[in-house]
Amino acid sequence: MEQGIATWGTPFELLKSHGPDVASALLIAIVGWLAAAWTARSVRSFGKRWTHIDVTLVPVLASVGRLAVLTVTAMAVLERFGVDTKSLFAVLGAAGLTIGLALKDTLSDVAAGLVLLVLRPFDVGDAIEVDGTSGIVEAIDVFQTKLTSFDGVPITLPNSKVRSAKIQNFTRAQRRRMDLTIGVSATADIAQAISALREVVSSEPRVLPEPAPTVDVIEVADGKVHLLVRAWTLPADFFPARIELTRHFKERLDAAGIVVPVPQRELHIPLREPERRSAPFL
């Protein structure tokens, strides 16, 4: 016991020998904590002023900046007490590798979410299609992207799938082209049918004058002549104009006496002759 006291010395000697290290470590910890808080506030303030950063990305960047400052602070404090930070980094690296392998799918979603938030192929409120899934973007989280389909069904997609898929952003399109195929009878006056469809298109205010809409024959098959109508609209007018044009096409063709044939199938059932039964043998 006495030997242990002699080794450590009196409290005064202990404070004299280690006091500067403790004081400097405490000072570093305080300064680092304040710097971490200041970094997080600065990132949030900068994110509010810079509109090119998505609002969902700001808290993530603030947390990452704060964690980075705290990590550097912790390493500096440990060095003041003689801890070998190199070996600590090796241990943390091995632990991080193990955790990364166990959570590779989750980390892939996080990385993809950060890429989506930085590159911003779409924003909240945009109408998009991701690999055949369409809807309105409701939220872009770190792990997943949330949509609401056009018929009101919530959709959740992992960010890794969204990042690697084909993304179509309908909202960012300057204009959209609709293709409508109208079938008329093969005996109808084609010139009259084309003229009638052009009148309907020209009377629709949501159809853009440039590029000019076109109406022409695209195919003759199954006893019908297929007319292709191509017209351009603004993205917000695409579906309303498409519905109105389809209805007005039918009304205008009916008024002109042009028949829009309905697919028909004829079913022939052969009649079988009744089987002749031989008279029983007597």
Rank of each mutant, 00 (worst) to 15 (best):
101 L>S: 07
6 A>L: 15
154 P>V: 10
12 F>R: 14
90 A>R: 13
195 S>L: 08
13 E>G: 07
91 V>A: 12
108 S>T: 11
241 A>W: 02
21 D>A: 09
162 V>A: 01
5 I>W: 12
139 A>C: 07
257 G>M: 05
171 T>W: 08
109 D>W: 03
18 H>D: 14
54 D>L: 11
99 I>R: 06
76 A>P: 05
53 I>K: 04
174 Q>P: 11
125 G>F: 11
212 A>T: 13
144 Q>D: 12
37 A>K: 15
34 L>D: 14
275 E>R: 15
9 G>R: 06
246 T>V: 12
57 L>V: 07
191 A>H: 11
199 E>Q: 09
227 L>E: 02
119 L>C: 06
178 M>C: 07
181 T>N: 09
139 A>M: 13
6 A>F: 09
237 D>E: 15
263 P>Q: 11
172 R>H: 11
110 V>T: 03
37 A>E: 10
9 G>N: 06
201 V>T: 04
136 I>T: 15
270 P>V: 05
63 S>L: 12
175 R>M: 05
200 V>L: 04
267 L>T: 14
93 G>Y: 04
265 R>V: 14
147 L>F: 05
118 V>R: 09
141 D>T: 09
135 G>K: 01
8 W>R: 14
164 S>T: 01
25 A>S: 09
271 L>E: 15
4 G>Q: 12
87 S>R: 12
91 V>D: 08
33 W>N: 01
117 L>M: 11
256 A>C: 07
169 N>G: 04
16 K>M: 06
165 A>E: 01
23 A>H: 11
87 S>T: 11
2 E>L: 13
226 H>T: 03
152 G>T: 09
42 S>D: 09
250 K>E: 15
109 D>L: 03
15 L>A: 14
216 D>W: 04
74 A>C: 13
194 I>M: 04
37 A>Q: 13
176 R>F: 04
85 T>D: 13
145 T>I: 03
174 Q>C: 04
273 E>G: 06
106 T>F: 08
45 S>A: 14
151 D>C: 06
255 A>P: 03
206 R>K: 12
280 P>W: 08
257 G>H: 11
216 D>H: 10
200 V>Q: 03
115 V>Y: 05
276 R>Y: 07
144 Q>V: 08
209 P>L: 06
132 G>S: 02
121 P>M: 07
281 F>N: 10
142 V>C: 05
246 T>E: 05
148 T>K: 13
208 L>T: 06
243 I>R: 15
67 L>C: 06
276 R>C: 01
166 K>M: 00
269 I>D: 11
250 K>T: 15
39 T>P: 00
1 M>W: 10
121 P>C: 05
244 E>V: 07
54 D>I: 02
190 I>C: 03
121 P>T: 02
219 E>G: 06
96 G>V: 05
148 T>D: 00
275 E>T: 05
57 L>N: 08
207 V>E: 04
121 P>E: 08
258 I>D: 02
93 G>T: 06
262 V>M: 05
32 G>V: 03
230 R>M: 07
123 D>R: 08
193 A>I: 01
31 V>A: 13
282 L>F: 15
222 D>M: 02
179 D>F: 04
73 T>G: 13
267 L>Q: 15
151 D>M: 04
233 T>E: 01
245 L>F: 12
85 T>Y: 05
233 T>C: 06
100 G>M: 10
234 L>S: 10
142 V>I: 15
111 A>I: 10
198 R>F: 08
7 T>H: 12
